[in-house]
Simulated scan of single mutants.
Amino acid sequence: MRSLYVAQPGCYLSLKQEHILVKQGKTVLQDVALPLVEQILIFSQSQVTTQAIRACLWRNIPIVYLSRMGRCYGRLLSIERGYRTLARQQRSLLEAECFCSAVSIVQAKLKNSRVMLQRQQRRQSLLAEMASAIRGLSYLIYRAEQATSIEQLMGFEGAGAACYFAALGQCFTNEAFRFEERSRRPPKDPVNAMLSFGYQILWNHILSLIELQGLDPYEGCLHVGSERHAALASDLVEEFRAPIVDSLVLYLVNRGVMRVDEDFDWADNGGCYLNDAGRKTFLRSFIQRMEERLGEGDEEQPRWDLLNRQVKLYRDFVRDPRVGYKPYLIR
């Protein structure tokens, strides 16, 4: 089973026998056998025929409409998909089962941060500057495994983030961009502005995928949920911050794609934000990276699917807590 991603604007999805055809004008971009489709995600202004919609509803295949940033506008679901059986199972998880998943998520975030610094250390020969941060992250990965409470675990995560971002600032080679620490409300410099914007795009898309799988986005393991905070989306975004957003920001800055004097505005509250031109440049690069196809042959899928796979792994954990949750790790 695979996800069908429609990212190019002006596409037309139709049904031909047992196949979904994705056309742009007269050109067939994709031809996928309907029994192999798990879900259809449309990131652009595209049309779906009534026949294709009915076939998807009959086969219990959701159709999701998203913005180019990954924010979900809405979805078409068959009636049986509307029941929240999985969400009830999720709320029945034992505290110990949730805590084990929280530990795995924090360790994955710290490990991915460490790999990011190790890569930069090799590329830029920042041996002395990086060695201390890498050792610190290794120690915190070990301590996270020994944690006995969420508060303690969050403390290790916070210490790891401070250690990581202090070292990450040394990886920016473009002198126009200075980054000394992570600031969020408001972001105080262009690098923080891009990090915040990128994390929000990721969070929006993960939230959509959580809803799509029938999970309760407000019932997390690491973060505390509320009516305004989808805790599970905040949990699952952690493992992707460094490999997707941080690596992209490094690329955009060091390659001179983003420009301090043209792509950012400063607000009265001291915050720095991407302006219209900056958002367009960042989004274009972000989407291009997420649409890069990974894998081989029939298994080739856009990088967006990494997020989808992790949400499905969490779904599997909810269905059978004995399997545990295995976060995404880069090497």
Rank of each mutant, 00 (worst) to 15 (best):
Y328M: 00
I105H: 01
N275G: 10
F165H: 10
V253L: 02
W304S: 10
R319H: 10
F99G: 02
W58C: 03
G82K: 13
P35K: 03
D276H: 15
A108V: 01
R68D: 08
N275H: 11
A277V: 09
N112Y: 03
A193P: 07
V48P: 05
G169N: 09
L36K: 15
L86I: 10
V260Y: 06
L29N: 09
G155V: 00
W266K: 14
L248G: 07
D276G: 12
I287Q: 15
T173F: 08
Y273G: 04
S234T: 02
N112M: 04
R182F: 01
L222K: 03
L212K: 04
E300R: 10
C100A: 14
Y5F: 14
Q45I: 07
V48W: 13
E95H: 08
R84Y: 12
V106S: 07
L94G: 13
L195C: 06
V106D: 04
R255V: 11
F43N: 05
A52M: 01
S92T: 07
L232N: 00
L202S: 14
F286W: 15
V323K: 05
P187C: 11
D268T: 09
S67L: 03
I206H: 00
A96M: 11
A102N: 12
K312W: 08
R241P: 11
E18P: 05
D31N: 15
Y325H: 07
E300L: 05
R54A: 15
R178A: 13
C98T: 10
E151R: 13
T50M: 09
L21F: 09
L212D: 14
Y164M: 05
D320S: 11
G270T: 09
I61T: 01
A33Y: 10
P243V: 00
Q47F: 15
R259S: 15
K23F: 01
L4A: 02
A144M: 05
E227F: 06
D235H: 00
N254R: 06
S46K: 02
V191D: 06
E157M: 04
D216N: 10
L93F: 03
E175D: 11
F317C: 01
E291H: 07
V311S: 02
Q146T: 06
E219S: 12
P243D: 01
S183A: 03
A131C: 09
R322A: 14
L283R: 05
Q47C: 12
Q301E: 13
G158M: 01
Y199D: 04
M154Q: 14
D320L: 01
L29T: 09
L21Y: 12
D189Q: 04
Q288H: 13
F177L: 08
I287E: 08
